[in-house]
Design a protein around this nucleic acid. Structure first.
Lengths: 346, 346
DNA sequence: TTGTAGGCGTTATCAT
DNA sequence: ATGATAACGCCTACAA
């Protein structure tokens, strides 16, 4: 690959054509319909391409094609490995389709999200995957209205005007609390917030439903609200929990996600509570760090990468299949029991 | 924004011009040199743009400009939060420059890395940031030769043919082991591998240097090799460590990164070893999960986001400043002492 | 101040 | 089988 970038610009089909002594159309044919070119010329052209270090210019192809060869994912919280795993699933699918992936992080801030979306629309990405700050934000509707393939990740579509991929969060909450009831716990805390987050509301709701169905007194399911789904909020919830009068103190906690659970675990250990004997803990998401904790965390598993792969599949279907129908893909969460909820109590 | 996407295509400057009753050049002026347009026409054009929902087509701008408005980062291991934090720093800088960011993950596989690079070159990204599988791989040199701005992240450039950003890993290793010596430990393990990874070699070297300088017998610095820098490899190192005859068993371990340290911690706790009393642990990177562990981990801190921001700054300088000089930015790591190494022993 | 024209690199259509 | 040409949307001289 002996470069001689004529005045800084990368070599184009035109340069290749000149070098190979053929017309520009022929070079294009070699690239896109090699069968139609005689093997002699094809070889000559290919040699020229190699010598010049020719690489197709995506921008030009995009301009012609009207759409880019890229997808985009706008994450809600880049600091949460859950979303990174979803992103990895998306990247796998994008790779398989030979597409590039823009990864953005809104960090939970609507205005950053909106700015990212603007940029992505300018880029004419083939499709946008997003775990939105607010599923009902108007700028999301704009995207669909623009006809840009669009999939909501980790949130079910309310209106059904687009595809979505999520697990059944209510069911997840049910599974978690059922497990704790099963373990003999009679006072349980739900740790999570803010309730502006749909996932939190639904996981909490599932917890409540089961608690009621088992005929437990509503007062024995204590809600410890948090301001975010972070480790440090988990720690602070732990402090509040430890501060409860012992007759009210729960013997188990169901946390709205694993980060909270890890924070809670840390505080419990620091405060000298034994896990699971003094306090059992269940998290949600089953990120890798849940299994890696000093006391491995029981967690409600979401098929993280598969969420991503499915979302990518849907967005590509919408982008390429004229008969595309919007689809709400729902996955079933599963309990992964580990040491943090210990052995059965009864 | 009342859309009427004429036959599916997004509205172009031409459409805006027609709607506003001006020429296409004027629309362009409104976009790029608003000062030169009379406020009356400008307003008319802006209204037309809003009504049509006009958004500039990046591909076309790129084609003209010869380069895209995007950067790219190729990560070595997407499962390690360290790289995610670096990526976040890069994204911050990219955002500030109004650039999009392609994020790719080589997963430590040279062939995936190479494939990603090919795609990124096709995309004509403004610059490529990479934490390479092998800093000496020929496909990296190709990039520089193509004149694509290029920065190596978390690895110093050997040859100096490009910019790089890293911390002083040897110093990091020194700091860690000095801390352990300071705590009175006389038998220490270095946990890490494979030695094909430069960072591992250098952190190990730093550990050795200090050990020697303090006149400690080489045999008392035990190397527990691992096959990767992962939690599960940390666990397995823990098993081997616990299996050592007690007179040889180290009282402290320095792990080449935090994932190993977390795995080691988990095994220690499971095996009934008290941390730090029976086994002190030092990690490397200071990812958020180090501080979040049940026994908060002492770690050698890298300025993760700042690494990313600096790398982005350098690549942008190379992209825009004709007088750019390649630069090897080196940061100084710092020990963050936490419970996993406990209080002084003497 | 506004309009016109040419070209960025690629692809596809139409002739040859 | 190959070559010439127009078009994608935008930007920037230059002309009016």
């Amino acid at each position: 690959m002996a470069q001689q970038p004529r005045n800084g610009r990368a070599p184009s089909v035109k340069d290749v054509a000149a070098a190979a002594g053929v017309s520009l159309g022929t070079v294009s044919n070699v690239l896109n319909r090699p069968a139609v070119v005689s093997s002699a010329t094809r070889e000559r052209v290919e040699r020229a391409m190699a010598e010049l270090g020719f690489i197709r210019n995506e921008s030009a192809r995009q301009l012609r094609a009207g759409t880019s060869r890229a997808l985009a994912y706008v994450m809600l919280d880049g600091g949460n490995p859950f979303f990174q795993d979803v992103a990895e699933g998306i990247e796998q699918a994008a790779d398989a389709a030979d597409l590039s992936l823009f990864v953005c992080n809104s960090g939970g801030r609507a205005e950053r999200e909106s700015k990212h979306l603007d940029r992505l629309i300018q880029q004419r990405v083939q499709g946008i995957l997003i775990t939105p700050v607010d599923p009902d934000a108007p700028h999301l509707a704009d995207i669909a209205r623009r006809g840009i393939p669009f999939v909501m990740v980790d949130r079910l579509s309310s209106a059904g005007g687009h595809c979505s991929v999520a697990v059944d969060d209510v069911l997840g909450g049910r599974i978690a609390v059922e497990h704790l009831i099963d373990r003999g716990h009679e006072r349980v805390a739900f740790v999570g917030g803010p309730s502006s987050i749909g996932q939190v509301r639904e996981r909490c709701q599932g917890a409540r439903e089961v608690w009621e169905e088992f005929g437990r007194p509503a007062d024995d399911l204590i809600h410890l609200p948090t301001e975010a789904l972070t480790v440090s909020e988990g720690r602070s919830a732990g402090e509040r929990l430890a501060g409860l009068p012992s007759r009210r103190r729960p013997t188990a906690a169901f946390c709205a996600n694993d980060l909270l659970a890890l924070g809670l675990l840390q505080h419990a250990v620091t405060a000298g509570l034994r896990v699971p004997d003094d306090l059992a803990i269940v998290g949600f998401d089953d990120i890798d760090f849940a299994a890696a904790a000093a006391v491995p965390l029981t967690s409600v598993r979401q098929p993280r990468q598969e969420l991503g792969r499915t979302a990518a599949r849907l967005v590509l279907d919408e982008a390429t299949n004229p008969d595309h129908r919007h689809e709400q893909a729902t996955f079933v969460p599963a309990l992964v029991a580990r040491a943090s909820t210990g052995a059965p109590r009864r």
